[in-house]
Structure formats: C-alpha cells, structure tokens
Nucleic acid binder design. Structure first.
Length: 599
RNA sequence: UGGCCGAUGGUGUAAGGGUAGCACAGGGGUCUUUGAAGCCCCUAGUCAUGGUUCGAAUCCAUGUCGGCCAGCCA
C-alpha cells in the first residue's frame, strides 16, 4: 500500500526558508543542516505544529540533515509529563515512514558534555540516531539548566547582566511603552561581585518567588521592547517535571532557547513570526557570550490559520477543560491525536503542509485545502466497504428467504493489488433512506416507485411496492431483482442512471457511527473579538446507528475504510467486542447535494 | 503618534527586471456498477500613487491596509 503513495513522485517544496538553506548548503557553510522542533510540553500538538514539524523535518530530510525533538520546558508551572509523552507519540506518528531517519534524539539520561576550545570550557549536546541502537529520549531544555546557569554567570562577569530587585509591577513601569523609552533600573549599576553573590543566593533559594530577577544589560531606550534589559532568570519555587526540585531559578525562553540551539549545534532555528522581534535578543545573547562554536540563526515564518478551526493550545485547552469536547483527542479537534483518532493519516497532513507552502504572509487557509488532502490520501489508500447509515428495508420478492447470491466486490479500484472479496445478497437488504424518494425530482437517479436502480456489485432492482404502516410511514420497499444484470450475467451491460449501496439485513452487523462536522459555525470563530464559544456548531457531532457489511467485523484500529458513496471511516477507540463504533473521517464529495438544492 | 514584518484571482501559493503560472474553491462538460475518483474546458489577480528602466508583480519613494511587540509565558 505504501508503494502507492511512494510511487507518486512528490515534488520537493520550495520556499524562502529552503532557499536560504539551499544557499548555505551551496556555500558549504555548515557540515550538516540541523533544525529542531521545540514544543513546550504544556498541551497537545495540533495542526499548526504539523506545519512546523513538516518544515523542520522536511528540511532535515531534503538536505541529509537532522531535526532534534526538544522539549522547551523552562516553565515548570505550566508543563506536565502527560504532554511530553503525547508530543513524542504525535511527532513519531506524523513523520512515520518519511523522516524517521532524521529524528534527532539523545541517549537516555544524558546531558551536555564539557568541551575545551581555545583554553575555554564550553558545552555541547550530542545527538544519537536510531541506527546507533541505544535507548533514546528527546532533548530537554531543562537538561541544559546547569550550562545555561553558567552562561548567566559568564554574562554577569562580562558586566552584561545584573540582578534587579524591581517588583514585577515596577519592572513593567520602568520598561516604558512602544512609543516611550524605558528607564534604567536603579539596580542596573550593581558591581559584578554583588551581582555574582546575589545570583548565587537566588540560586540557593534565599529569596521568595518574584523577589529578584537576572536581567540582561542592553538598552532601556531601544525601540525594540525586547532589548530593554529583558529578564533572563526568575525565581520559582516549583518542582519541575524533568529536573525535580534541583532548581528554584528558571531561565526564560529568550535566554534558554538560543543557548539550547547553540548547545545542540542547530544551524537553522525556525520559528513563527511573533518571535521576529525577539531575534535581535537571540543574536545579542549569543554574541555577548563570544561563544567558540558557530552560532545558530533564527528564521521566521507565518503560523497556520485555518478556516472553521481554532489553533491555539490555550484555547484548545479551554475546550477540553470546560468539557465542550471529549478530550484532547476528540475527533473534532485539530489536534494530531484528534485527527488521528478521526482517521486522518499522516500522509494527508504532510501533503497539506506541502500544499499550503511557507511564507511570511499571515494567511487564512481555506479548510477545503485540508479536506482535499485528506480525501486524496484516503481515496488512494482506503479499503472500500458497504455500510448503510440510515437504513430502510428492501425486500427482494423474487429471492427466497434462505437463498443467498454470492457476489464479488472490489476492495479498492485505485489499487488493483488490494483484490476482491465475496459478499452475499439476501432477500432482505438495507438501503439508505436518501436513496429512495416517493416523489422524486427529475434529476434524481436513485430508487422511486416503479423505478430501477442498481445495487452496487449485485444487480438492477425495480421498485414494485411501497409498504407503509398505519401512520403512513414507509416500512419497506418491495422490489424485484433482475439477476441477469449481475456482473457476467447475460444482461450485465444494462444501464441505469443510479447505483446505490446496500447491506444484507440478515447478515449485516449493527454499528454506531459518529458523524463529525466542523466545530464552529463561523470561518473565523474569533473574528472581531467574539467569544469562540458563542459560535460552536451544535451539530458538530451526530450519532447514527446503521449496518455494516459482515467483513467489517474484522476491522482493526488504525485501518481506513471508504463506506461506498458515503465517505471515509475508521474504528473509534471506543469500539468494543460488543459494540462496533466507527468515526466518519470525512464525507465523499457530494455533487447531488449541490444539485438538489438548485430549484 | 515607536519599532519590526507583510500585501499577486474568492482562498492560498509561484514567478526576484523580459509571455503573471499552479493548487483549492466555483462553473460547464465527459466518463461511471461510488452523483466518488479520473479526464477536458471555463471564470478570476499583481494594494495605491509617483519614480528608475527599452521593459516593473519584481528595484526606489510615499501612502494605504493588515499582522506582531509593552509576561518574571513560550
């Protein structure tokens, strides 16, 4: 099956970042291209992260480089082990069969090693690839706390950082505003010795949370706020999920990130646009330390915005915490775990990422692009099966109660190698309620009183009688089967306008099927500052009980099916031996739905 | 009213001085034992105004519009 996917030549993407990397490769600027994907373990990964993962791992694989998976875990108050685990699972899932060989991890439990360069002790974090056969784990920024702390001491010695006693509120006041310069902290001129002593006491836990900070000494009047003596270290008497109680001072993102990149030998540190204004600080820190090895550089691209979708860990967290969805892996969520549960394959997500490109323009991507990628992937890959979601009974009056007709059905017309299976036609079958209309419009190709339609893989039937109950509701349709129109039959070539799917009423298996629609009724849920909770789609989940063909009793978690004429489906994790539960990944395109609304 | 970044069909994205191309969406047709898929065709665009140039989407200037930045979050 994977041969199908790989037999289609995948165009190598080009974008402004890859252009830069291509130039650097041509210049032989680096021995190897090393990128990184550095999520903070404070939530689950979503489709926005998928764009970043595809970019970073994509570059790594295109240039025979490596992409380090790193937990950017410098804020213990918000982070959790649950997230570091889900992140690993999601990343591995997304790059599976594509960039596994580029996944940079480190040997279990290791940290940076000392390295003396030019008489000066520096530090380096080594990656270990899968081929090396050792137990591995992701990188953790928190594994570098010791080294980062030493770099902070160096900065103090250089007179480029100081301990500030300003309260958080005062720090804010002194910072000024975008159009008004800040004011120097009264603690800015402390001696190196005093700063060193104070930093040591901070680190030793002598001061309460928020009492003091370590700040870079840059320029309080800089038009760039992030150069106005940014805070580098803060006091937090909190246990860390990875380092335990070892520290009570934690570096901030700006200080930890550039140094983590440096320690790992990252060549291209790719992040989203909102960090653009941080880049001068990123460069300042690395340059201030006059580090002996090549410095990483930061490049920024626009984060993903998707129609009818909320992409923000914080807001997804709100949906989860408030019980508006069933969990981080609710199939309606754009989380990787949610989409995986829904039946989206990593191939589709990768194709989506490729097709939207990488730019610095803050775009709103049409959700149809995602849907197209999912359908294209599943069309090629998914096994075809028959299922009826909203059943109505058809009695084939010319077939005996115990008679069955054996038929051959194609498993996937897009993939001849997938072969065929045998299905049984019986006297009573289920068809879709939508596939019969008592009073049908002219362009309706399906079953109507006196009309003919083909039962997929079987034969043409004619509707002779519509049977109703006392209340006038249709209970069943009496039809005659034209067996000579079967495949290979004497009248097989007979044409009718419509072909519909069906499931044997006596052999079919009942199943619960969960149908998903977009979570929001508005393309931009938060447009004009509106609360996204006010535009939740009440119909985003509907549950139906239908019948599936017998072979589906052998379905496994992780397999994708096309229920013919309906859409793509997969087993849900709620499935059990006694209760079949399927998710609809996405519908098939429905030309009739468009046609039928035309007057 | 500070700084940084951006602007190409409805939506995205190419073209980086030389014919504005591709995808999605939309429309039409064809095929069809999935009203799917496939195949064919169509619709539709360089934010504005100046300037440089034989020639500008591309370079320059100004303007307009949009995004980001004032966490001891990332």
């Amino acid at each position: 099956m994977s041969e199908i996917a790989s037999s289609n030549p995948v165009p190598v993407p080009a974008d402004f970042i890859r252009d830069i990397v291509t130039t650097h490769v041509a210049e032989k600027r680096y021995p190897q291209i090393i990128t990184r994907f550095p999520p903070e373990p404070n939530g689950y990964l979503h489709i926005g992260h998928a764009k970043s993962i595809c970019l970073n791992f994509g570059i790594a694989r295109e240039y025979q480089g490596r992409c380090n998976l790193r937990m950017d875990d410098t804020n213990p108050a918000k982070e959790d082990l649950e997230y570091v685990e889900s992140i690993q699972e999601d990343v591995r899932w997304l790059i599976r069969g594509w960039a596994d060989h580029c996944l940079g991890l480190k040997a279990q439990g290791t940290g940076p090693i000392d390295e003396v360069i030019g008489g000066r002790t520096d530090y380096r974090m080594e990656a270990v690839m899968a081929a090396d056969g050792v137990e591995r784990e992701p990188f953790f920024a928190s594994d570098y706390f010791e080294q980062i702390h030493r770099y902070a001491v160096q900065l103090i010695r250089l007179g480029k950082a100081y301990i500030c006693d300003l309260s958080p509120a005062d720090t804010e006041h002194y910072r000024g505003s975008p159009d008004r310069p800040g004011t120097d902290s009264p603690f800015r001129t402390r001696s190196v010795e005093e700063n060193l002593a104070l930093f040591a006491r901070m680190t030793a836990g002598e001061f309460p949370d928020g009492a003091r900070t370590l700040r870079a000494k840059i320029d309080m009047s800089s038009p760039n706020i992030w150069l106005r003596d940014p805070v580098l270290y803060r006091i937090r008497h909190v246990e860390h999920h990875h380092t335990g109680a070892r520290w009570c001072v934690y570096p901030l993102y700006d200080f930890a990130h550039c140094l983590s990149d440096y320690l790992e030998g990252i060549t291209h540190s790719i992040c989203t646009l909102e960090f653009e204004v941080h880049r001068p600080l990123y460069d300042w820190i690395l340059q201030a330390l006059t580090l002996p090895r090549p410095l990483p550089h930061q490049y920024e691209f626009a984060r993903l915005n998707l129609g009818y979708t909320l992409i923000s860990k914080r807001k997804l967290m709100a949906l989860v915490k408030e019980g508006l969805v069933s969990g981080w892996d609710d199939p309606r969520l754009p989380t990787l775990s949610g989409m995986r549960r829904r039946g989206v394959r990593p191939e589709a997500l990768r194709e989506f990422a490729r097709s939207i490109g990488v730019t610095k323009y803050n775009a709103l991507t049409d959700v149809a692009v995602l849907e197209k990628a999912i359908r294209d992937d599943l069309n090629r890959y998914a096994t075809r099966r028959l299922a009826v979601l909203r059943p109505i009974k058809v009695v084939l009056t010319n077939l005996g109660e115990t008679e069955t007709v054996e038929l051959t059905a194609v498993n996937n017309p897009e993939d001849p190698a997938s072969g065929t299976r045998t299905i049984q036609l019986t006297r009573e079958v289920w068809i879709e309620q939508d596939d019969f209309m008592e009073v049908a419009p002219p362009k309706y190709f399906r079953l109507r009183p006196g009309g003919e339609v083909r039962l997929k893989y079987a034969c043409i039937i004619r509707c002779d009688d519509v049977v109703k109950d006392a209340a006038g509701r249709i209970t069943e349709l009496h039809c005659t089967a034209q067996f000579d129109t079967r495949t290979g039959g004497t009248n097989a070539a007979k044409k009718v306008k419509g072909t519909i799917h069906w499931v044997s009423a006596s052999l079919g298996i009942p199943a619960e099927v969960r149908l998903y629609d977009r979570l929001f009724t508005e393309e931009e849920p938060e447009k004009d500052g509106r609360d996204f909770k006010s535009v939740l789609n009440p119909g985003s989940l509907s549950v139906v009980f239908g019948f599936i063909e017998p072979s589906l009793s052998g379905a496994n978690l992780g397999e994708n099916f096309q229920f013919e004429r309906l859409g793509y489906f997969c087993l849900d994790s709620d499935n059990s031996a006694t209760k079949r539960v399927f998710n609809r990944t996405i519908t098939l395109k429905d030309a009739w739905a468009k046609e039928s609304v035309k007057v």
